[in-house]
Amino acid sequence: MTGGIRGPGGRVRRARRALLTRLATRCLVTAMALPQTLLGLLEPAPRHGYDLKREYDARFGEQRPVKSAQVYATLGRLLRDGDITVVGTERVDGPDRTSYALSAEGVTHLERWLAEPEPSTAHLQSEVYVKVVLALRSGRPAEQILDAQRDAHLGVMRGLTARKRGADLPTTLACDFTLFHLEADLRWIEHTAARLHRLAEELS
């Protein structure tokens, strides 16, 4: 796409930037509530965007570091919505850096988000369940699907447990979060493995 055909280049560039911003924010918000997380990181003291990105990555960005562009786009939206304000601009041998602070409104939004429980993701079915049902219906050994899934989960659990060795408490608890969830998955796998014969009967 070139700017020339659609009139003044500035407008096209702005429109494109807005689209990218929307895409960028959308994909991240689903991963980890970025706007609210940035509000939380900003609360103790004013910071500039790059600082926020670094702290986000260090604390929460293990699976998926946030892109600088996503941080700046989100800050732009928070600024527009009045959740943050600009408190200064400094130049440290390089680009200008804008510092942001949380507004009273931002604190309110942050507190509302903190207080609100996350939706309990009560998936009634998982892909593993679908595989088991399809295998049983086609006469394939469903037990092996459960065994393979169990081996994969156990491998990840060993890796996380090894990482906890000598790790600090934030890292340990982050690993534990996933360990407890995988443990729950494995309990379902055992529970199902013990009932495969009956499941096969009821499906046929």
Partner: peptide, 24 residues
Amino acid sequence: ETRVAAYADRSVVLRDGRLTAAPA
């Protein structure tokens, strides 16, 4: 307990007196 087994280098799983097999 799977979280206890995760301290091992390797796990094998018993069911009805024998080890479960890897997928064929």
